[in-house]
Design a protein around this nucleic acid. Structure first.
Length: 463
RNA sequence: UCCUCGAUAGCUCAAUGGUAGAGCGCUCGGCUGUUAACCGAGUGGUUGCUGGUUCGAGUCCAGCUCGGGGAGCCA
């Protein structure tokens, strides 16, 4: 008797036909008749189920057919070709051991459930087809991220999750403290005395690993972070979560053009990897979530990404204005409607927009020679809009200090960041990719809550 | 945070201001190859919460809570 997974059976069915096998898993559905019954068993290793055929000569037949969906079993039997059209083979059971009963109130029915309902049972939803596919893809994509960078010699850096810099500037932060909120220590002025806190200073959860990873960039040349990020923004949208994962590569001796090439290669690599290594899951998304998914992804993989400057983008948008809700003029930030028009209608493929006005971008982006734009790039993709944001960093100490002064940022708060420019600073560039946004893009899932196992959003941390 | 739509059985949804329903699920029975199995019977409700209008409110009004979508912020 050979223990085997459902995945192995599906991948090498021919060599297992006629053999005695033992599988174990959970009942997805059960259909019974007087003298026989069918169980679709999912063992967790594969997207598809194995059909088990039971005959009433099994000793515990009557007990088995009364099982509720969700029960766990160990099944022994012979793999045979199936006369049914929906599956090429099935396991003719010779012995069924019940290892865990379910109950009639099992919340997952055999029919389709709404995503909203499944969010209320987040601990059970990975047992559904959709979430089984989503989270297998998520795992695979995470592995592909590491493969992509490791193959290219990038060093994976774990930047801190608790940060002492209260000025990362990318958004509202969650404070980390061991102080008792009901009994805060105060200084002479009545302000909270953070010298009494755990770290002896105010600390928060990170909103970006970028500033920290730049320090390792100046030592290891090509580096990346891939970890959790936290934003305390009161955002109520299908694209925002309070806790999400970001991928942030950073390259020394690399300019904005190198940065864009890396971004394009990475996006194509990740999509190809998922298509090749999870074809059943990807077909499921194409069939049930987005009929245009494969066409959309093929277009990304097979086209050379477009490129234009912000100034050119504004000219095109102003000229072809199809009735935008927001006015278009030089200096304004591009709205989602503008981004999508550019990538979907004008270019019909992914496109990089570069050279944004310095006023609408972060302080660390490199000032261009025109003195009014910075070496920033956003990657826009059809169906979503912005998916990657990056830049060449300002490596010139005087220019960086000047920009920080303009924005009222205190140099002492960034002393170690400025040191990177003082001691052997060089041209360097990087970008950020929201991992969940990417997972949404390749699966066709439209709500970020459905690509995170236990999503944290405003007023929601049930699980 | 703003705009907008919504909340009725376990789930998905019906119900002119006048007796709260269906399908699915679940339970029981039937059925010798099922595929969201099928057939029959049964089970199922503080209509999100609080108040108001009315002879009468699931339905109209107000506030609140929660959820969907859009916007802003952004990834």
């Amino acid at each position: 008797m050979q223990d085997i997974t459902v995945k192995e059976i599906f991948r090498e069915a021919e060599q297992h036909l006629g053999k005695e096998l033992r599988v174990s898993g959970w009942v997805r559905t059960l259909r019974d008749s007087k003298a026989f019954a069918f169980i679709e068993l999912n063992d967790g290793t594969f997207f598809k189920n194995l059909q088990i055929v039971l005959e009433d000569k099994l000793g515990n037949f009557n007990e088995i057919v009364k099982l509720n969906v969700g029960s766990s079993l160990i099944v022994e039997g012979v793999l045979v070709k199936s006369p049914g059209v929906k599956q090429p083979f099935e396991l003719q059971a010779t012995k069924v051991e019940i290892t865990g009963f379910s109950s009639p109130d099992y919340p997952l029915q055999k029919k389709r459930h709404s995503f909203e309902y499944l969010r209320t049972i987040a601990h059970l939803r990975p047992r559904t087809n959709t979430f089984s596919a989503v989270f297998r893809i998520r795992s695979l994509a995470a592995y592909a991220v590491h493969r992509f960078f490791q193959e290219r010699g990038f060093v994976y850096v774990h930047t801190p999750i608790i940060t002492g810099s209260d000025c990362e500037g990318a958004g509202q932060m969650f404070q980390v403290t061991t102080l008792d909120p009901g009994n805060l220590p105060r200084d002479e002025e009545g302000k909270v005395d953070y010298s009494k806190d755990f770290f002896g200073r105010m600390t928060n959860l990170t909103v970006s690993g970028q500033l920290a990873v730049e320090t390792y960039c100046m030592a290891f040349r090509n580096v990346y972070t891939f970890g959790p990020t936290f934003r305390a923004e009161n955002s109520n949208t299908p694209r925002h979560a309070a806790e999400f994962w970001m991928i942030e590569p950073e390259m020394a001796f690399a300019d904005l053009q190198d940065d864009m090439e890396l971004a394009e290669d990475m996006i194509k690599y990740l999509i190809r990897y998922c298509l090749e290594n999870a074809p059943e899951e990807m077909e499921f998304f194409q069939k049930f979530l987005d009929r245009d998914l494969f066409a959309k992804l093929d277009n990304v993989v097979n086209s050379e990404f477009g490129q234009l400057t912000y100034t050119e983008a504004i000219e095109i948008l102003a000229k072809e204005n199809p009735g935008f809700e927001y006015p278009v003029e030089w200096g304004c930030d591009l709205q989602t409607e503008h981004e999508r028009f550019l990538t979907e209608k004008v270019f019909k493929k992914p496109v990089f927009v570069t050279g944004y006005p310095k006023e609408i971008k972060a302080f660390y982006m490199r000032l261009n020679d025109d003195q009014r734009t910075v070496a920033a790039m956003d990657l826009l993709v059809p169906g979503v809009g912005e998916i990657i944001g990056g830049s060449q960093r300002e490596e010139r100490l005087d220019k960086l200090e000047q920009r920080m002064a303009e924005l009222g940022l205190k140099q002492e708060d960034y002393w170690w960041y400025l040191d990177l420019r003082k001691y052997g600073g060089t041209v360097h560039s990087g970008f950020g990719l929201g991992f969940e946004r990417f997972i949404m893009y390749i699966t066709g899932i439209t709500n970020i809550r459905d690509v995170i196992s236990f999503p944290r959003t405003v007023r929601s941390a049930e699980f």
